[in-house]
Amino acid sequence: MTGPVNERKASLNMASRPRLARGVRMREDKVRGRTVLLAPERTVALDETGIAILNQLDGKSTLRQVIDTLAETYDAPADVIEKDVVAFLDDLGARRFLEFES
């Protein structure tokens, strides 16, 4: 079992361990040939970057580790990746799509 989940306020920092909240899931949308994120009353079409980021969220890796893994996988500078990842996850956090293990 992992630790308690901060359900109230979603705040993101380099030590937080984000993952998709219960009730938010990524799915193939075969009919339209794309991948979507499904959440309460929302459908978000994902691009390659979004899919790559979400695939790294397991509630165990810290945000720092997620960024480093992506930087390594895509052979890109960590500060560039960091900007993309933080912007993407901030947005998901504001929509209450994420949970953070503490």
């Binding site: 109230r8 306020k9 979603a10 009353e41 956090g93 504001a94 929509r95 209450r96």
Partner: peptide
Amino acid sequence: LKGVLVID
């Protein structure tokens, strides 16, 4: 309530 409650 940003990050706490989404209001539609």
